[in-house]
């Protein structure tokens, strides 16, 4: 039984569709990796789940987002305010700019507890201290009074996680949470997320373009390209034997997967600009396996073995 069920989600900017027919499932305690190049639509898909698309520019043009029997795609703004932060929390790529620079860390965590749960100042404060402890900030009671600029990058990211989890949401959307951090801190933050998943039963949508991060943390994967899901499935099977040529190409670009003496392979060409997607399969201009049918006919997502689906005419059946 999925906690969050996204069906046929499309996001449009004016007349052009940026994200098309995305299906995602998230079970309790599952870590779902959303992978793809820059501009593949990962981030706006996440924003759409929270209904935080920039008003007037982007809108959900089709599809549904089911959470606890409700369709968030059709919920009112007032209903969404009770979902955001309470049922779905969100953390962002850059903890430097996503924390309020003139508010104390403790107040930022306590604010949503007081706002959503009507807790007293004392209750909110002790919850905030507990959260700071949970995310691994030493001496949390003293750190409550600190401002974001007094924290290091890694600590800011931990603080942002504490802010997002203040009202104990069951789902955490993490939009490239480690991209702005250095490698050692990245590993710590990922471990923290997994630790929180284990202790709180948190389901996590992890957006990343780093397959190393995926390999360490995710249970299942959705690979996006040019606004579409190319392939979905359990991480282990998908990484071991990608069914879609795009997934295979991405894996081929990872350092360590090729001969170290040779230059790192890259996928030839550029991802298409939004609104100028090629006909047929959107990956075909860059695909090593492209045939005539790929230029004219869009491959549907086909079910393969092991709960996997891939959108390719020549999907390798594992």
């Amino acid at each position: 039984m999925s906690l969050l069920e996204v069906r046929n989600l499309s996001i449009a900017a004016g007349a052009s569709t940026l994200v098309e027919q995305v299906d995602l499932d998230l079970a309790e305690g599952e870590v779902l990796g959303l992978v793809g190049e820059s501009g593949s639509g990962k981030t706006i898909t996440c924003r759409a789940l929270m209904r935080l698309l920039p008003a007037g520019e982007l809108r959900i043009s089709a599809g549904s987002i089911h959470l606890n029997g409700r369709d968030l795609a059709r919920a009112s703004e007032a209903e969404m305010r009770k979902v955001r932060g309470v049922e779905i929390g969100m953390i962002f790529q850059n903890p430097n700019s996503h924390l309020d620079p003139v508010m104390r860390i403790g107040d930022q965590i306590a604010e949503s507890v007081r706002y959503h749960e009507g807790a007293s100042a004392g209750e909110a404060r002790s919850r905030a201290i507990e959260l700071l402890r949970q995310v691994g900030i030493p001496d949390p009671a003293r750190r409550m009074a600190a401002y974001p600029h007094e924290f290091s990058g890694g600590m800011r990211q931990r603080a942002m996680i504490a802010v997002a989890l203040a009202c104990r949401p069951k789902i955490l959307i993490a939009d490239e949470p480690t991209t702005a951090l250095d490698v050692t801190v990245q590993a710590q933050v990922l471990r923290l997320l997994l630790d929180l998943r284990d202790r709180l039963g948190l389901a996590i949508v992890l957006v990343t373009h780093n397959l190393g991060v995926v390999a360490q943390t995710c249970d299942s994967l959705a690979v996006m390209y040019a606004g579409r899901v190319m392939e979905r499935g359990p991480k282990r099977e998908l990484l071991r034997m990608p069914a879609h040529p795009y997934t295979a190409a991405l894996l081929g670009c990872q350092p360590g997967s090729a001969n170290p003496a040779e230059p790192l392979p890259a996928i030839p060409g550029q991802p298409p600009a939004a609104g100028a997607f090629p006909a047929g399969c959107r990956f075909h201009p860059r695909c090593p396996r492209a045939a005539a049918i790929c230029e004219s006919e869009r491959p549907a997502l086909r079910a393969l073995r092991d709960r996997r689906v891939a959108a390719c005419h020549f999907a390798v059946a594992p």
């Binding site: 929270m50 935080l52 305010r81 955001r84 932060g85 309470v86 929390g89 508010m103």
Partner: peptide, 27 residues
């Protein structure tokens, strides 16, 4: 109003007035 920490405040479900007077104005 389009800055990152305002997006973050919206992702916490805060209402418009709270975001304006508690987060935007002090900045």
């Amino acid at each position: 109003k389009t800055s990152d920490f305002v997006t973050a405040a919206r992702s916490l479900g805060f209402g418009r007035l709270r975001i304006l007077f508690r987060h935007i104005l002090p900045n």
